[in-house]
Write a protein that binds this DNA or RNA. Structure first.
Lengths: 253, 253
DNA sequence: ATGCACTGTTCATGCCATGCACAATAACTC
DNA sequence: GAGTTATTGTGCATGGCATGAACAGTGCAT
């Protein structure tokens, strides 16, 4: 118990201590808080769900809670911290995976992850510099446990988890930017075709015919619902891991 | 030549027309522009290189060019357009890939891509909603051409490119957030250890031992230079693609 | 020569994150 | 019970951002 007895918590990245629920709200002196961190985070989440991450600004959140902007700083030290809490809340509970079928688990996990991103697309806009929070840790934990039967060393299990995480995020991002069927038939019926025409012209003018050709492919033309790139990529990843697991030389290290 | 003779260009996403160089600067009447789009984009790039994407704000760019903020709107229609141009510029020329060795090409390409991201980490912060621009198209074209020998249908070639793109981005992002060796030895010698200790405690308190264990692994403790997750993941992806290419049933469609 | 199109500046608006001082409040101390 | 003290919510304030509108200068086209 030296001079920095409590600096253990002070030195943490923004939101970490709050996210892991290590704040002693006991025996506090002055005026009682009229709200709670949870309430504020919930309000911010609702705003983000409705209008994207930019809508979760401090003034808007404060208005929704019914309080002045600066009052939020009594609950959250910065906007960055708020975002960390909102993001962790948005992850929700980790999926339950089979423990005797690693390939099944490694199929289910990225599907569930991608579903989370599709349900809350603004999660893709959360800066990736966020620290490890309870829900994200739980997701990772579930996958690591389910991959144990592979017998891979811890390091390679983690790397495999990275592959699956990356794939789910990437696909969710592609889908978010892809047009939805409703958007296709609605507002701009031929605008999309015009853009495609423009790009085709420009691409061929620069001898980028391979890209131009691929843009003619149904997968590029199709809307978000008919995209099967996720399954294809996932199958390659799992095949690659499986080949490494079964056929591989005794894992180094 | 109807009422919307030139609306072909007007309806394009921000920056597209400008990025593909389809602006007629000929026979213009009034005062001659004192600067150029290229100069402005270069200034913004320099700022982003120095202090990240947030430093490429319109006031800062304008100050660097030596002009008022609003003067930039004579060259660029919005900040979004500027970012599109800056991003395309940052990609630079696509790599030259071997055309008779698809696996070699599929190894080289993501390495080069990741190098680009490491050289300009702020590229990871560019919103992914940007349209296809000349340099990104050239990168994609190079890879697609090099993957032709696989004999895969166009759609699957594109999906394979997605896998490699995703992997390179993800790894670059991991490395960016990882501590650099200099940062490790410098400023905060034991702060990192403290955060790790905090997380370990919290993780085990919630029975997330698998994650806690993995965090003890050298790959998690190590700095950015000793991370070999990129090679591991790339090998899995390429193995998965190769198995699909050689052993696969005749490609559906 | 004159008009018109184009540039760059000035002025202005409405967002945003955040800091500081202050009044109201409620526990703790005596 | 009275005073001290910590804590909350508010009001005021600052500096940054993207962007719009009006305007004066400038140079080609007629």
């Amino acid at each position: 118990m030296g001079i920095d007895d409590h600096s253990e918590l002070d030195a943490l990245p923004p939101g970490l201590a709050s996210a892991w629920d290590v704040v002693d709200t006991s025996t506090r002196r002055g005026r009682k808080p009229a709200h709670s961190v949870d309430e504020i985070v919930a309000a911010a989440t609702a705003l983000a769900d409705r209008d994207g991450i930019a809508a979760a600004s401090l003034p808007k959140v404060a208005a929704r809670v019914g309080v002045t902007t600066n009052a939020l700083y009594r609950y959250v030290s910065s906007k960055e911290e708020l975002i960390v809490l909102v993001a962790d809340r948005a992850w929700g509970a980790a999926p339950t995976l089979p423990l005797d079928d690693w390939r099944g688990a490694a199929t289910l996990w990225p599907h569930r992850l991608r579903d989370r991103f599709l349900a809350r697309p603004w999660l893709l806009d959360v800066p990736t510099t966020v620290p490890l929070t309870p829900h994200t840790a739980a997701w990772l934990d579930a996958l690591i446990v389910a991959l144990a039967p592979t017998g891979l060393p811890a390091r390679q299990v983690l790397y495999s988890a990275y592959l699956l995480d990356s794939h789910a995020r990437y696909d969710a991002n592609l889908r978010r930017n892809a047009p939805t069927p409703s958007a296709l038939s609605a507002a701009h019926p031929d605008r999309r075709r015009r853009v495609r025409g423009f790009l085709d012209t420009q691409l061929r003018a620069r001898s980028l015919d391979a890209v131009a050709d691929v843009m003619q492919d149904p997968s590029f033309v199709a809307d978000a619902t008919t995209n099967d790139g996720f399954e294809f990529g996932l199958a390659r990843i799992l095949d690659g891991i499986e080949a490494h697991v079964s056929g591989g030389s005794p894992p180094a290290r």
